[in-house]
Amino acid sequence: MTSVRIMRTRDWADPVPPARRELLTATPEIADEGKPPVLFVPGFGHGAWAYAEHWLEHAAARGFAAHAVSPRGHGASAPAPKATLRAYAHDVVQEAARLPRQAVLVGHGAGALVVAHALARYPAKAGVLAAPVFGGWGTLGLALRRNLFGTLPAAFGGRLRLGRRQLFGRELPDAQARGYAKRVGHASAKAQWELLRARPPEHPVGDPPVLVVGTPDDRVVPRTALDKVARRYGGAPLLFPGMGHDLMLDARWQEPIDAILDWLEKDGN
């Protein structure tokens, strides 16, 4: 319970303009009133589709109403070449507030940063940050070392291309990895730049429990960054060795989502 910023002149005088958004949903067969709805937020370049592959149906099978939103400019949402992080966070809060009950927000990659910003504006039931990319120049350094030619243009406002070997572990069949990597697009140049500048998110409102999950073998998010984000929220990351950055698409996608849902059943409620 730290202090909050209540003067939001920018949001009052210059609200984020609306944009059409894609929302994918998986509904449990037997609705369980005790389980909060879960809203998944993809990382930069990904869309709601990334969750529709496995996690949405799996969460629904375990009794959670599961939704995935594509922030503007992503997936099948309206194109938004000038979108800012603020607009992405707006999209997430809009979708969360449309759900019938207080939702859990789950963000992956830079989507975790979007979720962190959204948590400062919407009192979520709980927050989950999966392989969070909170940005900063360190992120760029690592990305450059791992994938010079995919990353370099992004540093100058161009498009960031993550290689499939950055995103997936070795267990994922090559064809599948190639297929996914082809679907990955990119966020707006402005949002990428904001990611590098790394304005730290404000404190969450309503003090929700926050879980950080990741993998020590992530080639986008170094272990130290995982620890740092987890410490921010007063915990340690939950680790899944042997996986790539895209936890929800990799061969062993079920382990992290089960751990997240277990945690929601225990602590997140």
């Binding site: 939001r8 809009q94 507030a97 449309r98 504006r121 919407y122 409102v205």
Partner: peptide, 15 residues
């Protein structure tokens, strides 16, 4: 107008 009328943590729909 909307931004001044909604609760800060529960926005009215964009639509």
């Amino acid at each position: 107008s909307k931004p001044f009328t909604q609760f800060p943590d529960f926005p009215m729909p964009d639509t």
